[in-house]
Simulated assay, not measured.
Amino acid sequence: MLAAGRPVLAAGRPILAAGRLLAAFGVLASPALAAEAVFPAAASVGLVPPPGMTPSKGFAGFEHRSGASILITEMPAEAYGQLVERFTPEALRATGFEAHGPGTPLGVAGGEGRVLRGSQAANGLTYAKWVAVVRGASGTGLITVQVPEAARGQMPDEAVEAALSTIAFRAPGSLADQIAALPYAVGDLAGFRPVRTLMGNALMLTDGPKDVDPDGAQPMVVVAPSMGRAAVPAGQEGAFARKALATFREIRDVTVTDEDRATRDGAVVLRLRATGSDARSGRPLAVTQVIRFDGRSYLRVLGLTPADRSEALARADRVAASVAMR
């Protein structure tokens, strides 16, 4: 994953990547408890955000002018056991998160949860961080709170803890509703079909009958714009794109075979073609990655397919060319 001082997107095969993601607090007469939970559009997990935090237009969650954010990731119910199994300070240290103690229970209405508190450094800044995994009637949620150390006065720990105590679940919106709530539209599916959205930001597409494809036998496309401001210095687009591709954990032994750079409507568009192998099955893969760098944001479209179905790469590029921010 690439940290940008903002919530970080981990794009991967449906459910598999989610499975790798990595004391109840009583607040008497709390204004948070008196209010109703706020849910991102079409989402099934919500909470009462701290004062000053508003729903984000770029991801599923909330943000504050100070740079503080709450990212909500939804997963199937069966993901809870996988997450809890890896929900330890030692396991999360590999992501750069330093826990300040073991995980503790987190009270969730009609469900259960655990929370870890700690800190993480990114882009020269240090953030206070909370990571909670929760389960309710409609599924599993991973809630990540980041507060810049310089903003602790504007977003005190007590406000974060109070918000975490209000996590709630509701019936999820339909896939069509979730797609309509994305911050972009895809004009050409190019023969792929939508499978799911992730974090109110990413869209996963496949070409085949399976929604869950553990062997990597079906072509797949992931559309994922940056979250918040994520400026890449001019001239560094190629290095950024290669690093992004190398950190996609569903693929190993990545070898870039071609790089194409163009300018469209003032934006830099960089496409990489590569080969690799599926991290689980070892199946040879062909890969395309298109990133559009536009000012202080970027849009990334990643396509991967079994090597013997490389024609799907051209269709993935069609998907990339058709994406328009709303």
Rank of each mutant, 00 (worst) to 15 (best):
G113P: 14
A267H: 02
Q120R: 15
S226W: 09
I143F: 01
A246P: 11
G61K: 01
A307L: 09
G238D: 13
V48W: 12
F293V: 03
A159Y: 00
L304I: 13
A171P: 13
R283E: 04
A307W: 10
R280S: 10
S281K: 04
L182F: 03
T247D: 11
I143C: 02
Y184K: 07
A29L: 10
V221A: 12
V221N: 06
V186Y: 00
M75R: 09
L205E: 05
L272I: 00
R271H: 02
L2S: 11
M325V: 10
Q178Y: 00
D177M: 09
E90D: 12
F25T: 15
G19E: 13
S174H: 03
V301D: 01
G101M: 01
A24P: 14
I72V: 11
A246N: 09
A279P: 00
M204P: 00
L285K: 13
V223R: 09
L33Y: 03
Q289H: 06
A190T: 10
I70A: 00
A168F: 10
D265S: 13
S119W: 07
A23C: 15
A128G: 14
A246C: 05
L175V: 10
G295A: 14
T54M: 10
R6D: 07
L2Q: 10
P55F: 03
F240W: 11
G5M: 01
Y127V: 00
Q82S: 14
V84W: 07
A314E: 13
L47F: 11
A168S: 13
A244W: 10
F169V: 03
R273D: 15
G12H: 04
I291A: 04
T197V: 02
V287Y: 07
G118E: 00
G52N: 08
P183W: 12
V268L: 09
A32E: 12
A94Y: 00
P51K: 03
G58M: 08
M53Q: 07
P194I: 12
R135I: 08
V232E: 01
A286L: 04
F87E: 07
D211S: 12
I72K: 05
V115A: 11
L272G: 01
V48F: 14
H100A: 15
P7M: 02
V145A: 02
A202H: 08
V323D: 02
D177A: 15
T95S: 15
V269T: 05
T73E: 13
A180N: 14
V186H: 00
S119I: 13
L203C: 04
D258I: 10
S138W: 14
T144P: 09
A42L: 03
S30H: 05
G118S: 04
L175E: 04
